[in-house]
Computed example of a mutant assay.
Amino acid sequence: MSVLSAAVVLVGLIGLLNLVLSFGIIRRLRAQATDQHAHSSRPKPTIRPTTLEDGERVVAVDAVTIDGRTVELPFAGPSFVGFFSATCSSCKEQLIPFVVTAERQPAGVQVLAVVGGTDEEAAPYLAELLSGRSEVLIVREQEDGPIQKAFGIMGFPAFTILDDGVLHGSDFQVSALPDRP
């Protein structure tokens, strides 16, 4: 009988120790969550679509549009440039906002779309870009091509606002760009 009593007491003590340790773990988790919440008010580092910072100049490069025109980049004056990869799902989501924003640009703003991927993959992008009411210059180039290197593109989709070749804003979403340089 004394062995049975000792076993019951031992199991009870183990249960009590388990309860105390569980409360300690819960208290630490709550403190950690509170600490993380306090640190979340700090500004998080922003991930940019380009290596260029606002105020930096884009390197000059020549390009040929899909209709055979040779253009020199960056453009003189204000410009709005979008970079798309035909295999990127976010690019598909941002294509129509890009076209709508291109149509809203005032006279004198040059709009350029750079589309990467195979001809078959890029066909829907080209059709959508050509269906817009505004004149969008379209350049096809493979990923990590010369235009993307000149702009320092690190991810897709990427959108930039420039004035005389100086970057005034870039983002992965059209809606996050400033209205004009």
Rank of each mutant, 00 (worst) to 15 (best):
A107R: 10
V115S: 04
V100C: 03
A38T: 04
E93G: 06
T87M: 07
I161K: 13
F84T: 00
P106S: 12
L17Q: 09
G132K: 00
D119L: 09
Q173C: 07
V81F: 08
R57Q: 11
F80L: 07
E93Y: 10
A123S: 13
V115I: 10
R104L: 09
L126D: 01
A113Q: 02
V81K: 02
V139Q: 00
E72S: 15
C91Q: 04
M154Y: 10
F83E: 03
L137M: 05
R133E: 06
L29W: 09
A107E: 15
E121C: 06
A60E: 11
M154P: 03
D54A: 13
D144C: 07
E121T: 02
S5G: 05
L13W: 15
Q110V: 05
D54K: 12
V174D: 01
R104G: 07
P43E: 06
V3W: 14
Q32T: 08
A122T: 00
F98Y: 14
V109Y: 07
R180V: 05
S22C: 07
F98P: 00
D144V: 07
Q105A: 08
G145T: 01
G116Q: 14
F172I: 07
V81N: 01
A176G: 01
A113W: 02
Q32I: 08
Q148K: 08
G55P: 05
L167C: 06
T118F: 06
G145N: 02
G169C: 13
F98V: 04
G82L: 14
V100L: 13
L112A: 01
Y125S: 03
V111D: 01
G155C: 09
V3G: 14
A176L: 12
E72D: 14
S41L: 09
I153G: 04
P157Q: 09
R104K: 13
G117T: 03
A107P: 02
T160W: 12
P78K: 12
A123F: 06
L29K: 09
R42H: 11
I153S: 05
V174L: 11
V139D: 00
F23P: 03
A176E: 08
S134L: 04
